[in-house]
């Protein structure tokens, strides 16, 4: 009974992860410029990775292996955020005078 519940939750998480990865790839095509594509890639893909990591955790052969999987997720999050920032900075530096709106709504 409990096993069945765990498997059901795992399946839901795996499907959710796949959906978000697919959305990340869709974002690469639907969004109009590089910066908005980075938004899609960073947020959707990291959420997808999070769901897949959660789905895999009950399969971990040991506690250490489970924590290692979580560690890989954290490293991937940091990697993705850093890459996003670097690419965004490069894009903006390249197209200075491009579309930028100084919008201070505070």
């Amino acid at each position: 009974m409990f096993d069945g519940l765990v498997i059901a939750v795992q399946l839901v998480l795996l499907v959710a992860g796949c959906v978000f990865f697919a959305l990340g790839s869709l974002g690469l095509f639907r969004f109009p410029d590089t910066l908005t594509r980075i938004h899609a890639l960073t947020k959707a893909d990291n959420l997808g990775l999070g769901f897949i990591v959660l789905a895999l955790l009950p399969l971990a052969p040991s506690f250490a292996a489970g924590f290692k999987t979580l560690l890989i997720w954290v490293v991937a999050l940091a990697a993705s955020a850093t890459s996003a920032h670097l690419v965004a900075r490069a894009v903006r530096g390249n197209t200075s005078g491009g579309p930028r709106t100084e919008d201070d709504d505070g």
């Binding site: 990591v53 993705s80 894009v91």
Partner: peptide
């Protein structure tokens, strides 16, 4: 643009990692 191609690296950093983790398990 070249920056669009740079996104490939970020893509492998997330989708590639997910793929390898799933295969590992």
């Amino acid at each position: 643009e070249a920056a669009d191609r740079m996104l490939a690296s970020q893509l492998f950093g997330t989708t590639g990692v997910a793929l390898l983790l799933v295969l590992a398990y």
